[in-house]
Computed example of a mutant assay.
Amino acid sequence: MSKKEVKQLPKIRVRQHVNPLSKKYLTPITPPHWEKVYNQHKQPLHLDIGSARGEFLLEMATLQPDWNFLGLEIREPLVEKAQEAVAELGLRNVHFIFCNVDNSLVPILDSLPQGVLKRVTIQFPDPWFKKRHEKRRVVKPELVNTLAKYLKEGGETLIQSDVETVAKEMRDRFTENPAFQPQGTEWLATNPLPVPTERETYTISCGQPIYRALFSRNRRGVGA
C-alpha cells in the first residue's frame, strides 16, 4: 500500500467535539483477543490516543511492519471507517478501537502482552477551551500514571498541539511524573516520526506553530 492510497481513503463528517463525561461513554470496553487482531501480537506496540480518521497510523503501519499499531478514538464513525480501511488494505499490524480512554485505557493495556507498549502519541487533542470544560481534556495525571505503569523502560511518548496552553498543560503533566524524562528543554522543531498527522500538515501549511515534546520512560516512578 502506498502513501497515495492512504491519503485517498474516503472522508466522512462527524461531530468534532465529544464529551467523554456523558453517560454514553461511561462503560469501559472489553478488549479483543490480541492474537486474533495482529499477525504477530508480541511485536512492539505504538499506541495513538485520539487516532481520528486513522490515516497517521495506517501510513505508519505500512512503513514499520515490524511494529503493531493501536488507535483509540471516541468518535465511533471514524473508528468504523478506519477499520474498513484496515480490511481493504489487508493490514494485520494495525487496529482501531472505539472507546473512552478515561475508563478503557487500563483494561486495554492490562490485556496486552507484558512489555509490548514501546511508543505513545497524543497529537492535537481536543483543547476544550472553556474553563468549565477543561476536565474533559484527555491528558490528566491519571492517564500519565497509567502510561508510566505500562510503557516499557526506554519507550517514548510524543505529545503535540497547535494550542500552546494545551501543549504546556500536557508537557507539565508528563514532566511532573518522575517516570518520564523530557528529551530537551525546548519545544521540538520537527516531528521525530516519519509521518505527520492531517492536523499537523494543515497547521504547517498555514504557517502556524506546533508545540511538540518527547518523553522517554526511565527507571524511576510509577511502575518502575
Rank of each mutant, 00 (worst) to 15 (best):
E76S: 11
R173N: 12
D162V: 08
G90P: 12
A224Y: 06
I210R: 05
A224D: 10
R212L: 01
P28M: 03
E186V: 12
F215C: 06
K23T: 08
V166W: 00
L151W: 00
L158A: 08
R171M: 10
S205R: 10
R132H: 12
L89T: 03
N93D: 10
E5Y: 01
M1G: 12
A179P: 07
P77Q: 08
L70N: 06
S104V: 04
L78M: 13
E169H: 03
P192I: 00
L57Q: 13
P113F: 00
R119W: 14
I108N: 03
R217H: 05
I122C: 07
E88S: 11
L109D: 00
I159Y: 05
P182T: 00
Y150L: 01
N177K: 01
P194R: 04
M60L: 15
N177L: 04
G154A: 02
T146M: 03
V116K: 00
S2Y: 02
E164Y: 09
K81F: 03
R173I: 02
P20D: 12
M1T: 11
I122R: 04
Y211R: 06
C206S: 14
E176L: 06
G221F: 01
W187F: 13
K4V: 11
R92I: 05
R136M: 12
C99G: 11
H17C: 12
G184Q: 06
A52S: 15
